[in-house]
Design a protein around this nucleic acid. Sequence first.
DNA 1: GCTCCAATCTGAACAGTGTTGAGATGTGAG
DNA 2: CTCACATCTCAACACTGTTCAGATTGGAGC
Lengths: 234, 234
Amino acid sequence: MARERYHHGDLRGALLDAAETLVRERGTDGWSLREASARVGVSPSAAYHHFASRDMLVRALSERVLAWLGERLRHDCEHAPGQEDDPQRRLIALGRSYVTWALDDPAVARLVLRGGATGPDSAITPHPHDVLTAELDRLTAAGALPEPAREGAEFVVWAALHGLAVLLADGLVRFDDPHAVTLQTERVVRTTLNGLAQEASHAAGRPAGRSAHTERLARVDLTLTQRQPPSMGA
Amino acid sequence: MARERYHHGDLRGALLDAAETLVRERGTDGWSLREASARVGVSPSAAYHHFASRDMLVRALSERVLAWLGERLRHDCEHAPGQEDDPQRRLIALGRSYVTWALDDPAVARLVLRGGATGPDSAITPHPHDVLTAELDRLTAAGALPEPAREGAEFVVWAALHGLAVLLADGLVRFDDPHAVTLQTERVVRTTLNGLAQEASHAAGRPAGRSAHTERLARVDLTLTQRQPPSMGA
DNA sequence: GCTCCAATCTGAACAGTGTTGAGATGTGAG
DNA sequence: CTCACATCTCAACACTGTTCAGATTGGAGC
């Protein structure tokens, strides 16, 4: 596995690859920078010309995977089975893609989902969160999600899906039947959307058209975390 | 800080305390066993008479906190503001307690919520998950949650609440107004419950009383993870 | 009271870690 | 062909988790 040329060519990418498979083999912390370097056939200190620290390596990997996940979600929305025009079907496809990924690649998912550096901003495109909000907009435009319930709705849906994904990736819950994951994911999305719709219709029944409760919620200023992109990474 | 007696008396507890404050100061991995030992005024190897490894220390701490959280949730259900007879109010109080804790003590929450050893089983009493299911049962008994929707409902609610808590603890979302957290939590719980109720009523409208979809969901075998309790830890 | 065992803790050591800095080795622009 | 610069190596640093032989102690049984 020793390379012949002194210069590696793409050491950065190779280190990210090695780190990714190491995460898969032994989790986020079950490996060392030295080991990743050794796998690539390079001295430990070589890595420091591409990443400021081990943490930065992990963060860069996290961002790489996150961007890939964004692509995957978007793709699976576009190619939702059945009618991809139905915005609700699209959202279910998104949820399924998200959760399935977390379950199929749990070690990497654990790394990425607890966001050491996965705050929505960075140069990550498309960020999974953006894909979700776009789908909710589409849902609203199609009339499937009432206007009054739209504000902050991405947060409710995100929490539910994220919770599901994290619970599965962490192994806190487990399904015997792999198909059950799909069903539960679908149920979570449907339940959440139904709940959101009903909340809005309740509000519409009130005198002012929107209840005081909904009104206050609308004023909630949901600020997504700003994080520095790794200086040498990404 | 050096103790006078050779035997510490309660080194185990003292190490757990030190670990807890270290987690709070520098996160799950930002400290060493040696440092925790030093804080307690004891040699590093002393810790190994109480915990098989550093990991076991962390796991034991996780379980201690988890049990404490269970107590907290149960307490906050019992003493729900307003009418503690209203099962929906109780569940909202539970959600509030859960999420608020994650936000107020994020470092410890991060440690505990990703469950290295927090699978519902162990000797943890009361386990937060059990408190949740008990509340859902109460909700069903009161008629606020239709029978057909009860099965697996704890999973939907848990996912939503857990997702919210994890997103906040990980700093993936942030609210400017601290009160907004309360509102969003309430919204998440309400939305989920409404969604579950509506799902059931939809099903009731069908010929067989339960749709094929609900029928399949009912057969989902939700298995909670079984994990070994740490051999030397509690 | 004393004895003696088992629990508890210490000290020194091991291999392995992240990280640094000085120097070797190539590469591509001029 | 040269030479500056990016890339990589080597050796070293302080520190980590962990082990184990031996010192220290509290308490049970006499």
